[in-house]
Amino acid sequence: MEQNSQPVSTSVPQRMRAAAFSVHIFTAMGGGVALIAMLEAVREHWASMFGWLGVALIIDAIDGPIARRLDVMRLQPNWSGEVLDLVVDFVTYVFVPAYAITSSGRLLPMAAPLLGIGIVVSGALYFADRRMKAADNHFRGFPALWNAAAFYLFLLHLPPALSSLGIAILIVLTFVPFHVLHPLRVVRLRWLTLWMLAAWAVLAVYALARDFDVGIPIVAVLCAIAAYIVGSDAAIRLIRTFKA
């Protein structure tokens, strides 16, 4: 949702304007959901925290199409849906997961606060970068998906040294101009991406229901889907280079 400077005709019914504004309220509710997720994180109810972050993810996925359907940019030009979306996304994708990662006990104690600061700072810079998306809708660099990174941190339960190294690498990759697949907006192989996304959602819910106590096959599939999202564009470009 982006701000539109065009005036709204006074003939537009108030119910249409109210419906348009309700979309902004719906988007802002993602921030309220993030607060609940943070409260669960403070209590170390990690599976519940991820569940609430999942609710915020659903809100983020559907508010845009609803906004376009209701013509929110034209009917409510005084509120910037784009800014609102970025504010909520920063809390749900970066800040709450940064707290979970830092306080989880899965990182080296000395490194945890520094890495947490690195997550928040790099995430803030990424959200402010006007080049965060390429022309073909791929993300440039690691797209501050720290909610997903935190999920895999709890899922894999690696030694603290390896987990700390992995988080440090992702912070650096935020500023590396490789392309990461946007699961909903990249046209190429979208059918495959959507099927993988659906499979990931089902397996992730199962993992949360089991408090991450799942077998190696499920962990392997979840990791393979993550590798596809992060590395498919690089793999395709590499194949094309060899064929050229």
Rank of each mutant, 00 (worst) to 15 (best):
P7Y: 06
P65L: 01
M196N: 09
A198G: 12
R74A: 14
L156R: 10
V187L: 04
A135C: 00
V96A: 08
T10M: 12
H24M: 05
F139R: 01
Q6W: 12
V180N: 03
L108D: 07
A209D: 10
S103I: 06
P217G: 03
P97W: 03
V83M: 10
L208T: 04
G166Y: 05
L115K: 09
A201L: 14
F175C: 06
A67T: 01
K133R: 12
H182V: 00
G231H: 01
A234H: 00
H157W: 08
A198M: 06
V88T: 12
G31F: 08
R74S: 15
I101F: 01
P13M: 12
G54T: 14
W52L: 14
L181D: 01
A61C: 08
A144S: 15
G118H: 02
R188A: 12
Q14S: 06
L222K: 06
P183T: 03
A220E: 02
A100H: 07
A34R: 10
L208P: 05
V91F: 14
S22M: 15
H45Y: 08
A198D: 01
R69S: 12
L86A: 13
A56V: 09
A100K: 09
I236Y: 11
F212E: 07
L155K: 11
A150W: 03
I36A: 11
M196K: 02
A100F: 09
A150T: 09
C223Y: 07
A201S: 13
S163E: 05
A47F: 01
S5W: 10
W200I: 07
F90R: 11
A111Q: 08
I169M: 13
L75W: 06
A207S: 15
M196T: 01
V55P: 05
P113C: 08
R106N: 02
T193C: 02
R210M: 14
H138N: 03
S80A: 05
W79D: 01
M1L: 08
G30H: 07
A234W: 04
M38D: 09
V12L: 14
L75M: 08
W200M: 12
V72C: 00
V96L: 08
I216G: 04
L107E: 06
T102S: 11
V219H: 04
I216V: 14
A224M: 08
V83W: 10
G64L: 02
E40H: 11
L197K: 00
Y126W: 14
L39D: 14
G118Q: 04
P183A: 03
F26Y: 14
A19T: 14
P65T: 05
L184D: 00
S232R: 08
V180F: 02
A148E: 14
Y99F: 15
D211K: 03
F50R: 07
A67G: 01
L197V: 07
P159T: 04
F142W: 03
R69L: 14
W79L: 15
A235M: 10
A201D: 05
P97C: 04
L53E: 11
H182R: 00
L35E: 04
P97Q: 06
I216S: 10
A201T: 12
P183C: 02
V172Q: 00
F127Y: 15
L84H: 03
F21E: 02
W200K: 09
